[in-house]
Write a protein that binds this DNA or RNA. Structure first.
Lengths: 158, 158
DNA sequence: CAAATCCACGAAAGATTCTTGCGCGAAAGC
DNA sequence: GCTTTCGCGCAAGAATCTTTCGTGGATTTG
């Protein structure tokens, strides 16, 4: 897999453009990065196959789709042995309300990004599923009021 | 702007498919949702113009790009009046390390999703920028160990 | 130092896809 | 029961994708 050192300035431009608009046509992309379409497409394919581009995603408007509650949950477990961490990680994958999840170090063991249609649904999930799951010690929740910044994962200079 | 009620089963299928692969061609999408290409494209355009599809994004592999540190920061402010919340929100937009940010209710006032090339860079940011910013009271950080789940924002049945 | 090799670019062409215009049929309203 | 409205799907032209191939420059090799 190519590492950072294998990417030149054009590759970085491609990544920046596709992070801003993942559905841009290859012709438009090639114009923006300053090369013609065929080599541009080859570079994109290479970035995809190398796993540097993990995929493409439409960003959806949760409130407009009836998902009014977005929250983060910080989870502390009783026991943090490898097997128990994996067990809880697997459990998060079975909860549709949990959209993405991270194993973290610090005061908590997991951070869950949750989306639900309403507060009642979310609270029921926290009480009946999350807090009562095996090995769960503490659950701290932070309900989001609004999104303040929303860039891609990687920052690009310029 | 169309609300949830204006979407039929085909629209939901479109949203699910594009959330999983935002770069799918329109003909492939139309095959998957069971209609022909022209009406499928019209539906996608309508969803985009209605703001239900907020955009498209390539998902990048942070470690492969030399970004080895992903962390979340929970920020508590001294004063939570509207003007102070807006001031801090604006400040987060100027920090490239902060990739996305939420205003939250609970024990903290903001949650920041941060990405940095190495631990030193991140720690310098936390100490010299974040913790020393005006009105910042508490900073709790959670370094991520690994991503455990990574779906889109919205869960779809089936 | 010269020659060979290796990449990657860019032009060209065929296949695929996008996009628009139009006719049709079903559902809703009068 | 008739009219209106709405969205689907066919068809065609425009744009894009994707492959093939020739060229030029950089690196490596003799």
């Amino acid at each position: 897999m190519p590492l950072k050192a294998d990417l030149d300035a054009i590759d970085w431009k491609i990544l920046r453009e596709l992070q801003n608009d993942g559905r841009m046509t290859n012709v438009e992309l090639s114009n923006r990065v300053g090369i013609s379409a065929p080599p541009c497409l080859r570079r994109v394919r290479r970035l995809e196959e190398a796993g540097i581009i993990r995929g493409y995603r439409a960003l959806l408007n949760a409130p407009a789709l009836g998902m009014d509650v977005v929250a983060f949950c910080l989870i502390g477990l009783h026991h943090q042995a490898d097997a128990e961490l994996k067990t809880f990680a697997e459990r998060t994958r079975g909860w549709p309300i949990v959209r993405d999840a991270w194993m973290v170090s610090g005061e908590s063991d997991f951070l869950l990004h949750c989306v639900a249609s309403d507060l009642g649904t979310f609270q029921t999930f926290v009480i009946e599923e999350l807090a009562s799951a095996p090995n769960v010690d503490t659950v701290r929740t932070a309900l989001t009021i609004r999104r303040v910044k929303d860039e891609g994962l990687i920052a690009f200079p310029g």
